[in-house]
Design a protein around this nucleic acid. Structure first.
Length: 454
RNA sequence: GCACGGGUGGCAGAGCGGUCAAUUGCAAUGGACUGUAAAUCCAUCGACCUAUGGUCUACGAAGGUUCAAAUCCUUCCCCGUGCA
């Protein structure tokens, strides 16, 4: 089942029947397993693969959750604080066409807190999003509020430009400190101290109530040494096991609480692979995490800016075939294409909305790095009465001009963020949808040629 | 008309003899943004040049004092307030 299909593309392309049989077999196994282990709780998720790329990695499928389906590959917009910034959930559904959202444990734990989430009836009801949801575990905040705090450090490094070692010893300014047992955070809201462990992260995520939750991992800077990367991988593996055990414990508790009319919903737990830019660490992590009983996988940590696809491929080749793979925090259009062809099923990323709020709009002419983006604050758009992207069919592009949105940005009107966020999210969500269709149609290369205009 | 107060770079507004091409904010120009610390951050912002430095022109205008003036003095021109 876990065979590496990278070298056997013909098998994938030509033999549809065997795949269907394997898929059926797999579903039966999963169903049986969940019936035997957790007879009283509703699962969780299932994953079906419908088509594959000739390279054996990329695939098109469907994740089924208690709140609906996600057709994969899919781009999952980020709703950190239970809101897609500047958008209503209705806009996300009707104008963007997104299938799911991803919220954040650390942020929702601080504000409004799990009691409010529980009383609201869970994340879906609270934010009025009826579709599938994820929560991230808070592991990333150990990085962004820790080593990266106050610095211009991205989790993407450019190896060609050289990677400097992080020698900054002034840890006092950090808002997060990691040790073997967990992470001590300071609240970004009021500075109060809070402790996250694998167990508390899982507890909080259960309380928030998403369909899919992530293990608590350690994400570190790409500037850290190999030794430090290795240590983070090992720590992440220990924490993954603890998350899984704690998750199982909560599941059985929920099962025991079962009454005739209650069907406690249990989220699916996804393990996270780390390993930075190092092939051996990535493969090791994928093997270890992939061997644990997660329902899906996240791929986190830092990457080489120029070569995300390769690292993703190392990992996906090691992960079990039949479970969904989520590439955490990656969303540049070019990276989505590279991720998909290397075996990623879902992505989340703040880039489309953050870039939108800062005046940037994706355009179709060239997805290579900066070529595929315009800055609406540039003087040249003040009297440009064309749509953001002339080839785009989103709500914003059908109804508004660059000149108008440029005016809104200069006037600091909120609608600028809304219109541009709709466009950017539509852009990436639909780019991935088109990739999915191309996989199903067997013309991924044609798709790439069309979208990778230099 | 008299008495005060004031005229500083696109705007607002510091500076009140040398360390001032002039604090700061806004505006402007460009850049960055990849599991959201982010409607944020960074750079530039008098002109020119053989450009981690140099030259010139600048703080209403014109003179003057001084080694040195946005800063002191004189006159003029504007603006505000008060009194006639």
């Amino acid at each position: 089942m876990h065979a590496n299909n990278a070298n056997t593309p013909h098998l994938i392309l030509c033999a549809r029947e065997p795949i269907r049989v394997i898929r059926m077999h797999l579903r039966i196994c999963i169903t049986l397993a969940s019936l035997l282990t957790f007879p009283y709780s509703y699962t969780m998720i299932s994953f079906d693969i419908h088509a594959r790329l000739p390279n054996g990695r990329g695939r098109a499928g469907t994740i089924t959750t208690p709140h609906g389906k996600i057709e994969t590959p899919a781009f999952i917009p980020v709703a950190t604080k239970a809101t897609i910034k500047a958008l209503t959930p209705e806009m996300l559904r009707d104008y963007v066409g997104a299938h799911a959202t991803l919220a954040n444990t650390y942020h929702l734990y601080l504000q409004p807190g799990t009691e409010v989430l529980k009383k609201a009836g869970g994340l879906h009801q609270f934010m009025n999003w009826s579709g599938p949801t994820y929560t991230d575990s808070g592991g990333f905040q150990a990085f962004s509020l820790g080593a990266a705090y106050g610095k211009n450090v991205s989790k993407l490094a450019n190896v060609k430009e050289g990677v400097t070692i992080d020698t900054d010893e002034d840890a006092s300014v950090r808002l997060a400190h990691v040790d073997d047992d967990g992470v001590t955070f300071k609240s970004i809201i009021d500075g109060s101290t809070h402790r996250f462990t694998p167990e508390t992260s899982i507890d909080i995520q259960h309380a928030i109530g998403a369909d899919m939750i992530f293990a608590f991992d350690e994400c570190i800077s790409p500037q850290e040494s190999y030794e430090r990367q290795k240590a983070a991988v090992e720590r992440t593996h220990v924490w993954a096991k603890r998350c899984l055990e704690h998750h199982e414990k909560i599941k059985s508790q929920k099962s025991n609480l079962k009454s005739a009319n209650s069907h406690p919903e249990v989220p699916a737990l996804l393990g996270i692979v780390q390993g930075g830019r190092h092939e051996d660490l990535r493969k090791l992590s994928a093997k270890v995490i992939g061997g644990m009983d997660f329902e899906g996988f996240g791929i986190g940590g830092s990457f080489d800016k120029d070569d995300i696809g390769t690292a993703v491929g190392w990992v996906c080749d090691e992960l079990p075939e039949g479970k969904p793979r989520h590439l955490l925090g990656i969303g540049d259009p070019i990276d989505l294409i590279l991720g998909i062809e290397n075996g990623i099923d879902t992505f989340d990323c703040v880039a489309p909305t953050r870039i939108a709020r800062n005046g940037g709009a994706y355009i179709r002419t060239g997805l290579s790095a900066q070529a595929g983006r315009i800055n609406l604050l540039n003087a040249q758009f003040i009297q440009d009465f064309t749509p953001l992207d002339p080839e785009c069919e989103c709500y914003t592009c059908k109804n508004y001009t660059r000149a108008y949105i440029a005016h809104l940005f200069r006037a600091k009107e909120m609608l600028a963020a809304t219109l541009t966020s709709i466009h950017n999210l539509y852009f990436v969500v639909n780019l991935v949808k088109k990739a999915r269709q191309a996989i199903i149609d067997g013309d991924y290369e044609g798709f790439k040629k069309k979208y990778l205009v230099k």
